[in-house]
Nucleic acid binder design. Structure first.
Lengths: 364, 364
DNA sequence: GTACTATCTGAATCATAGG
DNA sequence: TCCTATGATTCAGATAGTA
């Protein structure tokens, strides 16, 4: 769980009707853990919402108009990305999904705003729509960008949960998932309710990877509410912002009809192995497991050795320092002294790593 | 074949030493059919990285990848992209490869310059380097952008060749190919000659998809010349531009030592779509296990033989078709081409069924 | 020659708590 | 902000060496 959000000020688990640029300005800054955004592809598509004559809008072949189109889209993009950045916690992360029509604009602008890209992910569609005219490659993927607000801040990544989800191997940046079809596709009067409904499997992986139960998930282009539905089922809090009243209504009904969230044990992701309490090397002396003057050997077989001083420093060829420092002096590079140094078992005469003695302390 | 290039003015099949921004300015405009560009990625790596076994990762720290910031990188990008655009024919296409470090800058800028994106392609690596610290997703892909100079112009896309290469299914925007390792990786004194050498299979697919024999292929960041080597083997003309004299020398030697290009019939792409076996025969070509123009023998001892075309079809006595179709043409009845056709082992001279190579791929 | 093992490596924005 | 100590962390494939 992340640090406590000022959740009293947040309209949690609600769909808010409005343009995300204005709505986001009303929310407290540094209050959201994760933002998932599925923005409109370009200005032309946005225009389609207002003007019925799609073909005219689509026939932008004049170079100036084209540039004009990019300019307007870029401005829109910069506005909603800035507004998102303000409400994110420093270690909060942004996910944006798009295609080649818009993702290069979005990616460049979010970098300019100071977002730090952690990965880009390709959603490889197992069942994409073919290219009917045979003039290009089948457009079989979409791209997600995962970025943190502040490069130096600690972000949430449930590494072990992802590894577990991927059958014991590290989760990779290519996700092979089917598109949303069949019963999962929301319909109104037989027609699909939203033209770009994302599959819940995609959001499941995003939220499981980069948030914890109780975290606040915000979606500035909520549409029919896939992100909210998955957040609800995964025990996350959510905020949806959507401009279209019809979508808002569909999303509200969709989420209201969900079963109650599973209990918390089911939601807990594969945890990181618990951090072991820190034990100082000197503790081994105090416990009598090693004594001053005793010899430690570098490696299980090598001949190099050092003497333990009463203050738990090692003495080696006139040098003096911690088990880590002396190990690095012998073999430059990152060294964990606990694994480098061996003591001689007084009974068997065998060498054992001093890490065994530390385990002994920890278990006691 | 595209319209006639003013090839007299072009320095064909040569590596030119110099900065591509200056060199491109000396070439005639509207003269090049396809540009493949693998620009510096601007990786911005910080400290050293070690594997869990404490071995050090040999990072990309070449001088050519150092930029002061996004501003400098953007300016550099705009300059080389503009210079490329000038020499391209109106229907010529540009391919650029990159990762999230740079591809959003590059993609945005090329759109601003008037390039029209046709597809983006993800090269999904079958054997990427893992994320050793477990703090992100394994970075398992790179992105290629395919764009045409003039949106209204006719560009080259060998749809049926791609379909044939993909075993009768439309070629998709996700390409699953291994990275360049082992013997294929050029070395100097045991060290890799170039830190970012691309696999030939990737260039093979690019050039087969978007160019025709005789076309002029230009690479402004030639490096050790993978694009030129593949162009040569596919019967395309090529121009390489490279700043580093060492890379230039390596590339020249590499291409000079190639076998002669196969004849033109072998290179002609299939005019008609065909049916699909389970494993694509074309994969053997992409993997470099067989090459265009190579001879296959019908049976382990017979004298009948056929030539392999670049799009993985066979040519036999003026007939053209899949390994199965041609096998049936020779011996009517149900035939499994994988078991009928034999290749000659280059070392032992023995004939072996191509099914061995399929097994090799399957095991790999 | 074969089978098995050990070693090496690849475009990577690769840690964090505590003093 | 910097420094130090401690701990957490890898997959596929090729090659070389050994039995």
């Amino acid at each position: 769980m992340s640090e406590q959000p000022p959740s009293s000020a947040l309209p949690l688990n609600q769909v808010i009707l409005g343009d995300c640029r204005q709505v986001l300005a009303t929310l407290p800054k540094n209050s959201v853990d994760l933002i998932f955004a599925d923005p409109p592809y370009n200005l032309q598509l946005r225009g389609e919402l207002h003007r019925p004559d799609l073909s005219r809008v689509d026939r932008v072949d004049d170079e100036w108009d084209q540039f004009e189109g990019f300019d307007t889209y870029d401005q829109f993009t910069e506005e909603w990305l800035s507004a998102c950045r303000r409400v994110l916690k420093p270690g909060g992360t942004l996910w944006v999904i798009g295609t080649y029509h818009n993702i290069y604009r979005v990616g460049g602008i979010l970098q300019n705003l100071g977002f730090w890209i952690l990965n880009d992910i390709v959603w490889v569609k197992t069942n994409p729509m073919p290219n009917f005219r045979g003039v290009r490659f089948t457009n079989a993927h979409e791209t997600l960008i995962w970025a943190v607000k502040d490069r130096r801040a600690k972000y949430t990544f449930n590494y072990h949960a992802m590894k577990s989800l991927n059958d014991g191997l590290q989760m990779r940046s290519d996700w092979h998932l089917p598109i949303c079809t069949g019963r999962k596709r929301l319909r109104v009067n037989g027609e699909k309710a939203h033209s770009t409904q994302k599959p819940e499997s995609l959001l499941y992986r995003v939220l499981l990877a980069a948030s914890n139960p109780g975290d606040v998930i915000l979606d500035p282009f909520f549409g029919t509410g896939t992100s909210g539905a998955v957040a609800q089922q995964l025990g996350r809090q959510w905020i949806g912002i959507e401009r279209d009243p019809q979508y808002v209504e569909i999303a509200r009904q969709r989420i209201a009809s969900l079963p109650a969230a599973p209990d918390e044990t089911a939601l807990r992701a594969t945890p990181n192995p618990r951090r072991q309490p820190r034990i100082a090397f000197g503790t081994l002396l105090e416990a009598g497991l090693l004594r001053p003057g005793q010899t430690l050997y570098f490696g299980a077989e090598g001949s190099r050795s050092a003497q333990i001083s009463a203050d738990a420093s090692l003495e080696y060829n006139g040098q003096r320092g911690s088990i880590h420092q002396i190990a690095r002096a012998i073999q430059p590079g990152p060294r964990n002294g606990w694994l480098c140094w061996f003591y001689e078992d007084p009974h068997t005469g065998q060498r054992r790593p001093i890490d065994h003695l530390r385990q002994f302390i920890r278990n006691a």
